[in-house]
Structures are given as C-alpha cells and as structure tokens.
Amino acid sequence: MNFEYQVEGGDFTNAGTTSSIVKKMMKQLGVQPDIIKRTVVALYEAEVNIVAHAYRGTITVDLDEKKIYVKLSDEGPGIPDIDQAMQKGYSTASPKVREMGFGAGMGLPNMKLNSDQLNVTSVVGKGTTVEIINFF
C-alpha cells in the first residue's frame, strides 16, 4: 500500500495528523503494538521537525506485510551538520517550537532509537529527506 501526505511548515494545529493516520492503518493491519509505537514515535518526531523547521514537506508511506517504509522530504533550510544534529541536546528550534513542548534536541536521536533503519540526507538551502524503515 502506498500513501502520500502533505505537511505545512508552522502548522502546529495539524502536526501529527499523518502519524495518527499511519498508527490507525498499522493497527488495522494487526502489526505488533510495540512496533507500531516505535514507528509512530519516530514518524511523529520527523513530522514535527518538518512543521518546526521547514516550509513544507511530503510524507510517503509504503506499507506491506513485512515492513513499513516512510520517506519525509521537505523544502527548507536543510541541516548543515547532520552528525551534530544527531547529538542529544543539540537544537536550533525557535522559541515558538519550544513553547509547543519540543526543541530539546532529542528528536533525531529518538528517531534513530525507534527505527530499524534511519537515513537522513540534507542539502543546505534546499531541504532534508528522512527515511525510516521498521520491520515487522
């Protein structure tokens, strides 16, 4: 099954909508609850990152009986140093993002913990792509 969703930068009202849809789909498919939780936590962190940092983004979800593959591509400022961004506590989040309860520099490390495979690529001034793969 293939699905595609759009995410708007700065739209905190709808942040998490895609993660919520994916959670419901995985439940319906009967995926193990711990794998659902790991996947949606990683996805939600990534979705909030688009809302917090980018102008807009696209989330594509490829779900089959063996795995879930999620690709989040955004148009935004990009990440100059991905290794630095992967470190716990490093954040460039705005005060508004912090008011929403995020921006503690935990997002990327937590995505890594909750993914079987995580790939992050970025071009400064263009955008960032995050791929999350979890096996069932």
Partner: peptide, 15 residues
C-alpha cells in the same frame, strides 16, 4: 502544565 494539541498528539503516539 503544557496544554495544547501537541500534548494530546504526543500521548496518542506514546499510548
């Protein structure tokens, strides 16, 4: 003490 939509979303993802 954080009362916004993302509090609910976060709890949804975290069961």
């Amino acid at each position: 003490g954080l009362a916004n939509l993302q509090t609910i979303r976060t709890c949804e993802m975290s069961d």
